[in-house]
């Protein structure tokens, strides 16, 4: 067996199982952060499109900041400042104990905030792509606001937003690698620990790259499937 292969063996002798476990952590963090990001994005889009004075500006500040500041700096700010912020907020509500924000929470919240900004833009664009005439027609048919939202807006926004959200997903998945700096044992951190202990960094970073390739390729398939599903019944020229 070549040396690099034995390094990646399963079990106690090699690092194969550790790397795959790291990949599962990566996937978990990415899924949760992406889902939260979509929720933030829906809220962000609503804020940006709202007619309440001041609100759209607030939304603009959020997306401009996140898109203009390196993700690494955002993560560090949440990492160094998040715990203190949470504690002071808790104190306002009379809770005096110590709150510790662990690496997982730090990572997930940082990535959600980042992917939320991109999702905001995608969802806002998708809402604006729904023809105004349809909304007027729905109103003319006597649909309530809720029915209009559920039957007219959501299905179409979902369809228009899917390709963009696919990009946001890819971005979030790749951004999970940055979370290794706060000590979460995902693919990157695992590759580092293994390189440090075996002095074979090339082997482990190539393995990391292969794992990311696998994750992105698989999720691409999922998103393509979702796009086809969302576009069922849409007539093509």
């Amino acid at each position: 067996m070549p040396e690099w292969l034995s390094l990646l063996a399963w079990g106690d002798t090699g690092w194969g199982d550790e790397m795959v476990r790291g990949a599962l952590v990566t996937l978990q963090v990415a899924v949760v952060a992406f889902a939260l990001g979509v929720v933030i994005g829906a809220g962000g889009a609503a804020v940006k499109l709202s007619r309440v004075p001041g609100l759209p500006l607030l939304g603009d500040v959020y997306t401009t900041l996140i898109r203009g500041i390196p993700d690494l700096i955002t993560i560090y700010i949440i990492f160094f400042g998040g715990g203190q912020l949470a504690m002071s907020v808790a104190r306002l509500f009379g809770h005096t104990g110590y709150i510790e924000i662990d690496a997982l929470t730090t990572g997930v919240s940082a990535l959600s905030v980042i992917s939320g900004a991109y999702s905001t833009e995608v969802i806002r664009g998708a809402v604006m792509a729904v023809p105004k005439g349809q909304i007027e027609a729905a109103k003319a048919c006597g649909m309530s606001r809720w029915t209009l939202f559920r039957r007219i807006l959501v299905p179409q926004v979902a369809r228009y937003a899917l390709p963009g959200l696919g990009n946001v997903w890819q971005l979030t998945l790749k951004d999970t690698s940055l979370i290794s700096v706060v000590g979460l044992t995902e693919i990157m951190r695992q590759a580092f620990v293994a390189s440090g202990s075996t002095k074979q960094p090339f082997t482990f970073f190539v393995s990391a790259a292969v794992l990311y390739l696998a994750l992105t390729s698989l999720s691409n398939k999922v998103f393509n499937g979702a796009e086809i599903w969302a576009n069922r019944g849409v007539r093509r020229a």
Binding site: Q84, L85, S88, L92
Partner: peptide
Amino acid sequence: KKTITTLAAIAALAVAGLAA
């Protein structure tokens, strides 16, 4: 300037909490 002010406000809040 807005960014710094906002972040400063958040941080000031944090300091106030810690001194308790």
